[in-house]
Amino acid sequence: MKKMRLFILALVVIFGVQLTALPAQAHASSATTPKALRGTWFEYRGSGKFNVIKITPHRVSYNGRSYTPSKKADRKLQVNKWGSWYLFNKSKSPSKDLGQYKTTKKLINGSYKKVLVKYHGIGTYHVFPSHKYEHRYSYKVLD
């Protein structure tokens, strides 16, 4: 019986040491937007109208709604990184979540232009060029 207790105690000590030695996975949250995403971005809605996203170091504005670190509740800006995507206001509620963003290049009018891509929903990608083009570049992967 003593040997069994000693064996269990040794296992507990070994597992305890291993658990403390493992690096903790940190999901850093910040209120500073990445430089690559900053600027004013436009998505054509049709009939001469545009969705506008303006990103500054500490503010994200989407169609006039502003999100900053000093705001409260769902308008308080939080920035998380997930792979190559940045999440603004990650939330379990889809209405409060601003979606995932990254920049890439897209062929527009015969040359590659830098665009902001917003992923929000299943298979829906909204493409925001940095200039107003009266053409919709957004797409869906799953229909």
Rank of each mutant, 00 (worst) to 15 (best):
S70L: 07
L77K: 01
S84M: 15
K81I: 03
G64W: 05
N80V: 11
V79C: 08
G83Y: 00
S91G: 09
Y67V: 04
K76Q: 11
K81Q: 10
K81V: 06
S95M: 06
F88Y: 14
S66F: 08
W82M: 11
G83N: 13
S95Y: 12
W82G: 09
D74F: 08
W85L: 09
K72Y: 06
S61Q: 08
K72P: 03
S93D: 09
A73V: 03
N89M: 02
W85E: 12
R65Y: 15
P69H: 07
D74G: 14
R65T: 07
Y86C: 11
G83I: 00
W82E: 15
V60S: 02
L87G: 06
K72A: 12
L87C: 05
R75H: 12
L87F: 00
P94H: 00
S91D: 12
S95K: 11
N89C: 01
L77G: 04
A73D: 06
S93I: 02
S66P: 12
S84P: 04
N89T: 00
Y67P: 09
R75V: 00
K76I: 01
N89Y: 01
S93P: 01
S61F: 13
N80I: 11
N89S: 06
P94L: 02
K81N: 04
S84T: 13
Y62P: 14
R65M: 15
R75C: 05
S66Q: 12
R65W: 10
Y62V: 09
Y67D: 00
S95W: 03
K71R: 11
S91N: 13
Y62A: 07
V60T: 06
N63Y: 14
G83Q: 00
K76E: 10
G64T: 12
F88M: 09
N89R: 03
V79N: 14
K71G: 05
R65C: 10
G64E: 13
Y67E: 00
Y86P: 11
S66C: 10
T68Y: 00
D74Y: 12
S93V: 06
W82K: 09
K90E: 15
K81W: 01
N89D: 01
K72R: 13
L87R: 07
K76W: 02
A73F: 03
R65S: 07
S84H: 07
P94C: 00
K81L: 04
R65Q: 14
K71Q: 09
W85R: 14
P69N: 12
S93W: 08
V60F: 04
R75L: 10
D74L: 13
W82L: 15
R65P: 09
G83D: 08
L77W: 01
V79K: 10
N80S: 07
S61D: 14
N80A: 15
N89Q: 05
Y67L: 04
V60A: 02
K72V: 03
K76L: 11
